[in-house]
């Protein structure tokens, strides 16, 4: 009740009276039913009994309607505290007098705004993504859960031997590129691709799909302290961080779920064009440097070199 005193919209005295009125109403309603339950008795004549019963019944009904009227009158005085608030009961938080110490209400509003925005943007994003349908494998979204197990065998469960074959064929295809295959964690392969003396690429595979690539400098360490391939840390050099971004874009670009080996080959062919990373000028502006970076983008079809900002 002490909290209520702080609320200018609530009349405390009216509250107390209203509660009393509710009690009165309940007892008068109880009396009505008591009267009905007891029926006509203790009267000598039938007529007298009927009269007495009707009078008693009438009186108790009157008292019910009187108490109800009183309650209605009081309820107007009490006011309507929270039900009309847009945030319902959480709106009561705004009544907290110590805003500085417990800024719950403003935080709540902020969180509410954010969640609204998030929902809106998520809606937009899902609309856009569905149009683009970046299906990296046949069993991704859009396919119903029932069909999922069916799609799996064709593309995801390939014998390791087959993966090894595909990779070693690619390795032989490009003399300036050496590919080292290892399986440190079960069946998934990890590739360490060394391109000339320019860069090294760590490629994490899932079957024949490329899940992740990290590009690092030729002179950078690609192993963790315990001698495993370091698939998490990024390059120290801005140029290779940029190339990593582009390689990730390329992963999403080269897609052909039914022929994963072609995808890997296309990706490697594209990657090989970085052999001239420091030697090729931009095909658009003709310069080597832009903002301190060489042309880091390679066109997916023509493999020509462009600065990130020079490509269309």
């Amino acid at each position: 009740m002490a909290d209520g005193a702080l609320n200018p919209g609530v009349n405390l005295e009216a509250f107390a009276q209203a509660i009393a009125a509710i009690q009165a109403l309940r007892s008068s309603v109880t009396r009505v039913f008591d009267c009905l339950k007891d029926g006509m008795r203790n009267k000598e004549t039938l007529e007298g009994r009927e009269k007495g019963f009707v009078a008693a019944f009438q009186e108790s009904l009157h008292s019910v309607s009187r108490d109800l009227g009183e309650l209605e009158r009081l309820s107007n005085l009490v006011g309507k505290p929270s039900e009309n608030h847009p945030l319902h009961n959480s709106g009561l938080l705004s009544l907290d007098p110590v805003q500085d110490k417990t800024p719950l209400y403003s935080q709540l509003l902020q969180a509410y705004k954010w969640s609204n925005k998030l929902q809106y943007h998520a809606g937009l994003a899902s609309g856009l993504l569905n149009q683009q349908s970046l299906k990296r494998s046949a069993n991704q979204m859009g396919v119903s859960a029932k069909r999922r197990p069916k799609a799996q065998p064709t593309t995801l469960v390939l014998p390791p031997q087959y993966v090894d074959d595909v990779i070693s064929r690619i390795d032989r295809m490009f003399p300036e590129m050496s590919i080292q295959l290892s399986r440190p964690n079960g069946t998934s392969a990890m590739l360490l691709v060394t391109l000339g003396k320019v860069l090294k690429v760590i490629v994490v595979m899932r079957s024949l799909f490329i899940d992740r690539t990290i590009v690092k400098g030729y002179n950078e360490n690609v192993y963790t302290e315990d001698g495993k391939l370091d698939i998490w840390s990024k390059s120290n050099y801005q140029v290779f961080q940029k190339v990593t971004d582009h390689a990730t874009t390329a992963l999403l670009h080269y897609q052909l779920p039914q022929m994963p080996d072609v995808v890997v080959r296309s990706f490697m062919t594209w990657l090989r064009s970085y052999i001239k990373l420091f030697q090729a000028p931009c095909q658009r502006c003709g310069k080597f440097l832009q903002d301190g970076l060489p042309p880091t983008w390679r066109d997916f079809r023509t493999l020509e070199a462009f600065h990130d900002t020079c490509r269309q």
Binding site: K197, V198, G217, Y218, N219, Y237, V239, F240, F278, Q279, P281, K287, F288, L289, G292, P294
Partner: peptide, 21 residues
């Protein structure tokens, strides 16, 4: 020094452009 490149001849043109700047 252009730190990412280990072959001096590869990045000479790039170095040159940077130095001219």
């Amino acid at each position: 020094e252009y730190c990412p490149c280990v072959i001096a001849n590869d990045c000479w043109n790039l170095l040159m452009e940077f130095m001219q700047s």
